[in-house]
Nucleic acid binder design. Sequence first.
RNA 1: GGUCUCGUGGCCGAGCGGUUAGGCAGAGGUCUGCAAAACCUUGUACAGCGGUUCAAAUCCGCUCGAGACCUCCA
Length: 492
Amino acid sequence: MKENNLQLYNTISRKKEAFIPLNPPFVGLYVCGPTVYSDVHLGNCRTFISFDLIYRYLLHLGYKVRYVRNITDAGHLEGDRDEGDDKFSKKARLEQVEPMEIVQRYTLGFHEVMRSFNTLPPSIEPTATGHIIEQIEMIKEILRNGYAYEVNGSIYFDVEKYSKDYNYGELTNRKLEDLLENTRSLGGQDEKRGRLDFALWIKAKPEHIMQWPSPWSVGFPGWHIECSAMSTKYLGKTFDIHGGGMDLQATHHTNEIAQSQAYNHHAPVKYWIHTNMLTVNGVRMSKSAGNGFLPHELFSGNHPLLDKGYHPMVVRFFMLQTHYRSTLDFSNTALQAAEKGFARLTAAIKTMYQLKTDNVSVSNIQQWVNDCYQAMNDDFNSPVLIACLFEAVRIINSVNDQKETISAEDLQLLQDTFKAMFFEVLGLQNINETASSSSNKALETVMEIILEQRKEAKQRKDFATSDMIRDRLATGGIVIKDTKEGTNWHVE
RNA sequence: GGUCUCGUGGCCGAGCGGUUAGGCAGAGGUCUGCAAAACCUUGUACAGCGGUUCAAAUCCGCUCGAGACCUCCA
């Protein structure tokens, strides 16, 4: 494991803390995954890309990370009253298919999107439906400990009782009285005793499609209990990092803490990490607001707010240019700026492997390496790391232009660190490699011949012909650029 | 109403008491038959008003503005 002084912002203490794992070199990381009843939108993706960065950096530092990210495929209710349909049943009924068909379709879609963003798969990706027994066992224990009650076959968590022994609102720094004051009052037919109480187990109505037997009723688990059950099963009663989007902080994570403490009297998590939201024109992207961008809309440019499509790596780079705890606003101009910057970065990588070395280095490469690590050690500050990479671009180009020199040893260090930061830590990939499909091969052959002709025309100063070739290629969507090394081309 | 963020140069976006963040755009230059591209150089910004301090974008107070959570959402 590398020496490090990683600092991370802990939501529960509201400050940056030194990262000290419970059992080094092992690290337990749990992230709340998607509810798979519809396509993931870009806001969801941002969260998972942020945690991919965190996961990657921990791995880079040499930690043995067990990364658990669940798939919610049951129990997530439509309304806020712990009644009515869960989201899968509703969608299934709407589309006349099995709920598990819905789950399967959107799980596959989710994985495909995650792959396009080059995120590493988690170590374990457990599903709620695969852990019904664990959830029932946990509910039993919470009941035995006196923090839950049964009404008509449903089980509810007793927040009032819990609050006598623990601080319910600690994650969001809220007092119970304030929470009570600002929660809507109970409806007449509500089974819950307290207005903050939430369901652990819900008795299914006869028409409900997804249901399982339990000691209390044939029904299905509440939303929050799955994460408590699965994180406990795979990471233990107390583990290092729990993450998720900021929108989960107040309700979902607060209830997770309550369940875990009611279950085993342990605070479940040492460090809570919350990622900020993606916004569109300053408003949060969300399913309910209807302003969600789908990844494929962004890749293809097929969306009223977009001028053109962007490669997944450009989007990933764009997102990493903002710190994970800041909101990120989506716009064409910002995306275009990212695209150009990214191209400059990848071009420099190519140059970096062609540099000539000298006896001494002008720039302090070791200092630059330190700067890179310092950026990431400061709460995973990817924007600052990217600024460091651009500083390296400046050095690389200066050496290339023979405006400064670099020693062989320093060049090696520069290459190794740049590569590690760009590919391993930021998880970026080169995108200008031409795919070697057969049609591309054919096109390459044609272009080779055409550019040969143009070169000959230029040599005999027949610029009318050379310009004609250039213009007509441009009309056809092929752009050519003359450089010292020859002529490059690419399809627009 | 309660809890809490945030307001940085044309745009995006770091910074968390004293040093150039960075990217994009713009300007100047190098290269080039021309063009484009590429590369180099370049900008002194911190919502307003007070206060603390030798020193504030950075700390404190007030004002104005934007947003989030408190109800399902990453």
